[in-house]
């Protein structure tokens, strides 16, 4: 079970899932960015970020997600999101994240569409 503010990593053979919990602000965002960069450096260029237990995402958190999208593009990787609330999905679409990353309802479909 995730703590109130936490990050969990699940590594598959060809992909990795990062699950965050809590308020995605600059502090949690930096932890997320660090984990994503470690995974990318270790060759995981197919990533899923599961936000199901992420209660709120502010614009600084979104800017860090954009940095992860850009880091993956440099390695020709793919990023899919899952577990977004309706408001989070609407915000991601407005801020153009949905143009460069996939949005799926659950982790299974996000992995299947990498």
């Amino acid at each position: 079970m995730l703590n109130k503010f936490d990050i969990q990593i699940r590594e598959g053979q060809e992909h990795a899932v990062i699950e965050t919990a809590g308020y995605l602000n600059d502090a949690l965002g930096e932890k997320l960015s660090e984990k994503a960069r470690e995974l990318i450096q270790n060759g995981h260029t197919q990533l899923v970020i599961n936000l199901e237990q992420t209660t709120l995402i502010n614009s600084i958190g979104i800017s860090i997600l954009i940095e992860i999208i850009e880091a993956l593009e440099e390695r020709e990787g793919t990023l899919n999101f899952c577990g977004l609330s309706a408001t989070q999905e609407r915000t991601f679409r407005m801020m153009a994240l949905a143009k460069y990353a996939g949005i799926y309802p659950d982790e299974e479909s996000a992995i299947a569409n990498l």
């Binding site: 502010n58 614009s59 600084i60 979104i62 800017s63 954009i66 940095e67 999208i69 850009e70 593009e73 408001t87 609407r90 915000t91 407005m94 801020m95 153009a96 994240l97 143009k99 460069y100």
Partner: peptide
């Protein structure tokens, strides 16, 4: 890389949209 992926200065845009 993508001009439409602006990292900062979007807070009020979010407020206005919601």
């Amino acid at each position: 890389v993508h001009p439409d992926l602006r990292k900062r200065g979007r807070g009020l845009q979010i407020v206005r949209s919601l």
